[in-house]
Write a protein that binds this DNA or RNA. Sequence first.
DNA 1: CATCATAGTTCAATGATTGAACCTACTGCC
DNA 2: GGCAGTAGGTTCAATCATTGAACTATGATG
Lengths: 168, 168
Amino acid sequence: MKKVSFGEMRCSLARSLEIIGDWWSPLIIRDIYLGLVRFDDIALNLGISRNLLTLRLRHLVDGGALRRTAYQERPVRFDYQLTEAGEELVPIILALTAWGDRWAQPAEGQPIRFLHKTCGCTLTPKIACSACGDEVKASDVRALPGLGGAARPGTMVLAKRLAQATRA
Amino acid sequence: MKKVSFGEMRCSLARSLEIIGDWWSPLIIRDIYLGLVRFDDIALNLGISRNLLTLRLRHLVDGGALRRTAYQERPVRFDYQLTEAGEELVPIILALTAWGDRWAQPAEGQPIRFLHKTCGCTLTPKIACSACGDEVKASDVRALPGLGGAARPGTMVLAKRLAQATRA
DNA sequence: CATCATAGTTCAATGATTGAACCTACTGCC
DNA sequence: GGCAGTAGGTTCAATCATTGAACTATGATG
């Protein structure tokens, strides 16, 4: 996967990235979400090498984002489905897609549009605060040290800085 | 960086991932957002090797997420700031952090909390539809082919499937 | 004059990723 | 009965990315 493991870092972002933080995993999850649930379909669609796809799928299953189920016996054939955790990743991936539309759009135009079924509009995802419902902007947020904070790789300098900023 | 380039894919998600889709970039952006704007601070905080940090920072600057500015002359010293595009990445990263809190939390508890200054609550980011304001769930969204859709690596099978599903 | 600080660069060793070929059931057709 | 086709992988060598450690350059400070 990579040389340094993020799993040990005391940082929720790093732990998310440990599961879906490589180049292919978000694309794999998007494909499965869009109905490409079989090994060969995903491999062909993405152009990923087959052994790496095996690795990634296994890692996503182990990480709790995917479920591997047999859709037939004799011969046994498997496909992949999103778990609850995996489904909660989808809106985040949509938000990232929207960022790409806005800041790195291909010359040919938006490749895929998303329809929000409940309101009928073309979806533009925004990140909102679940408490007040307002859109969250970088400048409206302040970081505070949590209970599990510690000076370790991943939060080496940060833990100290946050503690200082909070005292001041 | 990697062997296959996503930049050529006609897929906004792939284009986003081309810029921030590796293991380190989201962590780098978070660090800069939290005030770790200097090379040595980031290197120490994350434990990333210095040559790779150089590469990643350069890539993020080229991709438009970061800006490199001299904060002093003699000797010239640089630090890194988020651009507008980079700031719009922050809420997405917070959403990913929240996912990690929910599905892969360390035993010690949440390492960092985020305060939403405008409402005073601890922030739990949700993805919402900008049109109706409702929270977006995977099941409420339907994908439609956009103008730039095409059968290429990254959307090889998908483009056909979407076109079929739309006709039906 | 020596030491420290900052923002990197260079290089060998190690690990991840690719692409192509192979494998193991089965099914369907002649 | 034999042969091609389908699906979900595995195996292997070659290539590329990443690591870790040492080094550079420019100046400030004692």
